[in-house]
Computed example of a mutant assay.
Amino acid sequence: MTEPADPLLLGQRVVAILETGLRTATYKLATLMALLEHCVENLPADPAAVLDVPIPELAHRVLGIYWQQVRPFDGHELRQSTVSTARILNATRTLQQAADSRRRGLSVDIARLRAPQDYQRAIDAITLCLAQQPLHRLQKLPGASTSDAFLYDDAFLHDKVSLATLRAHGNAVQLKPGVAHGLARLAGLLKPALEIMWVDDVRRMNKFLDAEVPDVAGHLFGRERTALAVVRGPLKEAFGPHCFYCRTHLPANNPVDHVLPWSMVGIDGLANLVLACARCNGDKSGALPAMGLVDRVLDRDVGVLEELATALQWPTQRSRVVAAARGIYLGQPAGVPTWSGYRRRERLDISFAPWWMGA
């Protein structure tokens, strides 16, 4: 019987792969981030289980990561590769132009609804690029002739692999026993480390980004996340002009908050968005919310959310919120502090797990 991966050893091996040698693009980092998100949202019930990871799903997540990053920074288009053919970035920009997303500030999920054929072409291009480059090379140490396949079997991947070959292998890689659980548990530690490496790589690839240029990290990983202002009014009409957390009456330009924080999982669907006052929004920031708050947000009228989604052409993503919440909380150590309201914290206790923990 194969022993499941040890999370600590798994994390050490991932970091070692990334820290050894010079990265020529940020694609490996993006692929690992996408893998972390996928494991959190598709956590197997058995900690020792394998997990099939569809490469097109990884492509969608990678597209979402680069979606905001391709916008100009201080008038410059940031290089994220040392080679001229930046396939993933080019596919991202092409889709944005087709969906008119750069002008309107639309998210990738809305672009998918508005330009489905262009979206599929982008996914196909990114899928092939992931298979030929980062997935093929992610587990190989510099100078090694073969991979050390500790995450997934990559024997069928190579730099000339075709879409037909990928289809023959189910368009997926299979994570080895226990790897999905290990990566989900490590997500909170690995994601900040990946972001630090990413910022360092982008500074290295763009000579104008010297140490005096601030907020590169903010540009890459969160500033101007998406144009959320368009959902503010409809949410007020549907649920009332009150803060979701403290019920105070809201002014005209109140924040729209991600209940599951953007820093943990980038879900912009209506099921993860609530109205908040500036005080609660600032105090909560990127903190893990108490499970009772997740209960409340998932208890909202699904029919109302779907009506808003249709009217706004904005995805609901409720099933994704459920899956992400389950993965996030199961990966937390017992007793970790959670945010339960303005200047209030409570210790995490999953002994009385809500319904969505077993979904």
Rank of each mutant, 00 (worst) to 15 (best):
L8S: 12
L10P: 09
L18M: 11
E19H: 10
A25Y: 00
A25K: 06
Y27M: 08
K28W: 10
K28S: 11
K28I: 12
L32I: 15
H38W: 14
E41K: 06
N42P: 10
L51Q: 14
P56A: 01
H60Y: 11
I65W: 03
W67A: 02
Q80A: 08
R87G: 01
A98Y: 00
L106C: 00
D118K: 00
Y119R: 07
Q120N: 12
I126V: 10
L130K: 08
L135D: 07
Q139V: 01
S145P: 04
Y152T: 12
D159H: 14
V161K: 11
A164L: 04
H169A: 09
G170R: 11
N171R: 08
Q174W: 00
Q174N: 04
G178D: 13
R185H: 07
L186F: 10
L189G: 02
I196T: 12
K207A: 14
L209A: 06
D210G: 15
A229Q: 14
V231E: 02
G233P: 00
A238S: 15
P241N: 15
A252W: 03
P261T: 07
M264G: 01
N272P: 13
L273E: 13
V274L: 06
C280E: 07
K284I: 03
K284T: 02
K284A: 02
S285Q: 04
G286A: 14
A287E: 05
L293E: 07
D301Y: 05
L305T: 12
L312F: 12
Q313T: 11
W314F: 15
R318C: 04
A325T: 14
L330I: 00
G331H: 03
G341S: 05
